[in-house]
Design a protein around this nucleic acid. Structure first.
Lengths: 239, 239
DNA sequence: GATTTCACGATTGTTAACAATTTTTGTCAA
DNA sequence: TTGACAAAAATTGTTAACAATCGTGAAATC
């Protein structure tokens, strides 16, 4: 909301003078998306204050926003913890995605010519590059972002928000229950979905997407869990 | 989040000792849903403080939450205003609903037998009653809530949240651009949709829903606007 | 040795005063 | 009357001190 958080031009150093709450939200959001912040990790106010060099008010506002997005959970008098979806929530997330994404890609495949599919082709390129370089966190983040960008090309901000939330949640779930390393988004399925969209083939696009989502689900084992991280500054400071 | 906001048992009076931020959020949310709070109405902190008998902190937290749900907008140093969707946003809302709701009712019509459709039948009864009594605000609110409840019967909290947000936004839009009085949700279309669901007829359910949404859209005139309300205490105090 | 109790430290929740900004009001001149 | 300008009032943003709560660990008791 406020504009102060931008790095001011007269500021010689690269460090922004005053990170706004949006900055903090984005930083934590990104860390969660890249699975650098494990579920159940505690986010203490004091820690975040010194990490971002900000007063407690900003941190608290950021935490409230994050909790309203379901990224963290606030326990009264006990602090903020990275959300830790259970089996039932995981089921709901995939059910919601199965409901929304098929008609979404179908619509894209039928879509008007003025759709900016370049966003997606560029993204696939990024994914390929990251896979070649074997950059784990980058691969994970881009894997999720592809689905967000599917929504973005509709240009509809509500659809984008919904998908963003579902994808974030999925990232938490995969981090919690994922088994094999490549489970997040196998091979080049994204590329094939995009090709089906470009070929204006709604049926195939939908089919590819559905089996893609199934692959992700099948890579989950609902009985294994990770333990919480703890060195926040290292995790949030650089990213 | 906190539990304090419940009216305590030992409290003889009906007035809750300390309304939590959830209470404030719900109250304002409801006022918006019933179109008692017009778009662009200013919600000043001091006003809300005395209306709810609460400190400024609670009010600010509530406003932040409401803004994250898109119900109000926060302008830096200028305060909070009830969201005022423009033509483009209105288009996006209906596009999003057209994407989500058809597969949703389709799924309900195909749905497992354990779905709690009683929630919907009860709701239709309430709508009929309100229509008979000619209670304007009640009719408006129930009209929107029907669609929220469609999502609720899936038992999926993500789908419910999405629909709730879209329905709220729709209420703002209808309030802003709606022309005729009965435009909100014509006749007994909800009842017929429910019947199609009960009859396990996905095609008809979807068709009825799509035409229903079209009716709502057709009742809008994107060139007329209402002016802001101002007596907050009267509006929020009783509802 | 195990369990309960209590007190301390650490963390979160709240309040009130202060600072900064915007909006309004009043004045003066054209 | 209208417009610009300046002071004042009202409103929002921020900070820091204070209060309340929770977790931990030591001491005491069984």
């Amino acid at each position: 909301m406020s504009i102060k958080s931008q790095p001011s031009p007269e500021n010689g150093v690269d460090i922004p003078a005053e990170p706004g709450e949006n900055f903090i939200v984005e930083r934590i959001y990104k860390a969660v998306m890249e699975q650098r912040l494990a579920p159940n990790t505690k986010l203490s106010e004091a820690r975040l204050c010194e990490t971002f060099g900000v007063g407690r008010m900003r941190v608290r506002r950021a935490l409230l926003l994050l909790s309203s997005q379901g990224i963290i959970e606030l326990h009264s008098n006990r602090g903020a913890y990275v959300a830790c979806p259970d089996k039932s929530e995981a089921h709901d997330v995939f059910a919601a995605r199965m409901l929304i994404e098929p008609p979404l890609v179908r619509q894209l495949a039928q879509g008007a010519a003025d759709l900016n599919l370049g966003l997606l082709t560029d993204h696939i390129a990024l994914e390929d590059a990251a896979r070649k370089e074997n950059e784990r966190t980058e691969i994970i983040r881009l894997s999720g972002e592809f689905h967000s960008k599917l929504a973005q090309v509709t240009g509809n901000k509500f659809i984008s928000r919904m998908m963003r939330e579902l994808v974030t949640r999925t990232s938490l779930i995969v981090g919690l229950f994922g088994t094999s390393e490549h489970a997040s988004c196998p091979d080049d399925e994204h590329g094939r979905i995009l090709k089906a969209i470009q070929a204006r083939d709604p049926d195939q696009a939908e089919e590819l997407l559905v089996s893609h989502l199934n692959h992700i689900q099948n890579g989950l084992d609902m009985d294994t869990r990770q333990q919480p991280q703890d060195d926040l500054t290292a995790i949030l400071g650089a990213g």
